[in-house]
């Protein structure tokens, strides 16, 4: 019996959230004296083996194919099914990325598995997976369980710490003979949003703009602030709607879930659909001119005032604070 962990690769790096999940899976496996194995699916899956070895897994499956250049769901599903059939795990874990959200249901359906998506925590007790899922825009947590023969669990980023545990793993290259003609969907183009160099969902610091950021001048201030902080840029839905910020930066129920060390909410009111994507940030700073704005209820530090006055000062001060 084993727990199989999918290792997500993005922009030539292993997603931290995969390692968070892997680290936790290892604890659970120990408790239930099971083994942990991992699978890497990428154009150059092999490159990531050494890194994954640091996490005390017993087997590492690698599936390499040019097909994984860009995310397309059908080949990814086939690849996942293939390792599942090889490994026959009791549990398979994933980092809850958009790519995984895209395929999780299909894989679950194919394997008749119990699927528990987007959990904040999970555990395995005598054959049953017990998980806590944020639901209703994270208003509540639902205790969810499944005792299916195979359970697929995807985990929200930031739910667990990354802990290495050296060990030597057997590496299994899985050959992937997938006929491209079976792909019934074709990628026309990829609009990769330049600018956000730092992967938002993994960023340690996030500067998030809301509708309070009304114009290019405001956007410039956000950019500068994120520069000096080395932060990724996030946004609320209403400001994405204005077209000023790319949809990829949206944080919340519809958008991404982030849990950085520092989250600066600038001109964001704090609707639950937004906060559901960032409440787990360690430190939340809110800048809002409305003292009643709900965002202040969850902010460690709240600044009541006009962002156009505050940001320039803040940028200056942080610069000098960093220089000393």
């Amino acid at each position: 019996m084993s727990i199989l962990c999918h290792i997500a690769i993005s922009e030539g790096r292993i997603k931290r959230s995969s390692l968070e999940t892997l680290s936790h899976a290892r604890h659970i496996a120990k408790k239930n004296n099971m083994e942990v194995s991992a699978v890497i699916i990428d154009v150059k899956a092999g490159n990531y083996v050494p890194e994954v070895k640091k996490f005390g897994v017993s087997k590492i499956y690698t599936i390499e194919s040019p097909l994984f250049e860009h995310h397309i769901n059908s080949p990814l599903i086939e690849a996942l099914i293939k390792v599942i059939n090889l490994e026959k795990p009791k549990v398979m874990t994933f980092a809850s990325t958009e790519s995984i959200k895209d395929v999780l249901g299909a894989v679950g359906s194919r394997t008749k598995a119990g699927v528990i998506p987007d959990v904040a925590s999970f555990d395995l007790q005598n054959g049953t997976i017990h998980a806590q899922r944020p639901i209703m825009a994270s208003k509540f947590l639902a205790d969810t369980e499944s005792n299916a023969d195979l359970v697929l669990v995807s985990v929200r980023s930031g739910s667990y710490d990354v802990q290495e545990s050296p060990g030597d793993a057997e590496v299994i290259k899985v050959d992937f003979d997938f006929d491209e003609n079976n792909i019934r969907q074709k990628i026309r183009e990829i609009i990769s949003t330049s600018g956000d160099k730092i992967d938002l969902s993994e960023a340690q610091i996030v500067v998030a703009a809301g509708r309070g950021v009304k114009d290019e001048e405001g956007k410039k201030l956000i950019m500068e602030l994120s520069e000096v902080l080395g932060a990724a840029i996030g946004a609320s839905r209403s400001v994405v709607e204005t077209g000023m910020f790319s949809p990829s930066t949206q944080i919340g129920q519809t958008g991404k879930v982030v849990s950085p060390q520092l989250y600066l909410a600038v001109g964001i009111s704090g609707a639950i659909q937004h906060t559901s994507g960032m409440v787990n940030s360690r430190i939340i700073v809110a800048i809002n001119k409305d003292p009643e704005a709900p965002i202040f209820d969850i902010a460690n530090y709240g600044l009541v005032g006009d962002l156009y006055k505050i940001l320039p000062l803040l940028i200056g001060q942080i610069k000098s604070a960093k220089n000393k």
């Binding site: 679950g108 008749k112 598995a113 119990g114 699927v115 528990i116 944020p134 639901i135 994270s138 208003k139 509540f140 947590l141 639902a142 205790d143 969810t144 369980e145 499944s146 299916a148 409440v279 939340i284 003292p291 202040f296 209820d297 969850i298 902010a299 460690n300 530090y301 709240g302 009541v304």
Partner: peptide, 18 residues
């Protein structure tokens, strides 16, 4: 394949310094 056994409030954050 899955069942919800119960619900609970999301542990809230306390407002800090305003």
């Amino acid at each position: 394949k899955t069942k919800v056994t119960g619900y609970r409030n999301t542990p809230g954050r306390k407002p800090g310094i305003k």
